[in-house]
């Protein structure tokens, strides 16, 4: 029985000036092959100008059960949004 190639997460920058975005994953024996395979699997139609490959095992993710404690605190801080403040029309654009 052969040992399975490790899983890599693939991130692609679609255009200059944009962030890399997660597009999916693939198996590859090493980083070089991960990039080559990502080229073939995820950019067959000019979808990218740059590829990042990260071993899936190296990704640290927040756990779904922490969703409350992690993200709820910001719910109550509505003043972080500019629309919280009423600025009179006479003041003009701000």
């Amino acid at each position: 029985m052969s040992s399975e190639w490790p899983l890599w997460e693939i991130f692609i920058r679609g255009q200059h000036g944009l962030n890399h975005r997660h597009v999916g994953s693939l198996h590859a024996p090493d980083a070089e092959m991960a990039i080559r395979n990502a080229r073939d699997v995820y950019t067959r139609r000019n979808e990218g100008v740059s590829i990042w490959a990260v071993k899936s095992n190296d990704i640290v993710a927040s756990s779904p059960s922490e969703k409350g404690p992690l993200f709820e605190p910001s719910n109550s801080k509505v003043y972080r949004h500019p629309t919280f403040f009423d600025i009179p029309d006479e003041v003009g654009h701000m």
Binding site: E4, L7, G24, S25, L26, D40, V41, R44
Partner: peptide, 26 residues
């Protein structure tokens, strides 16, 4: 050739998606 290569890609997207449920490619 391009069409058949796409189908290989489709298989790979779907295998990867299935693997997120805890089954391995092998």
């Amino acid at each position: 050739l391009a069409k058949v290569q796409d189908e290989a890609g489709h298989g790979l997207y779907l295998y990867s998606a299935a693997e997120t449920l805890g089954v391995s490619r092998d």
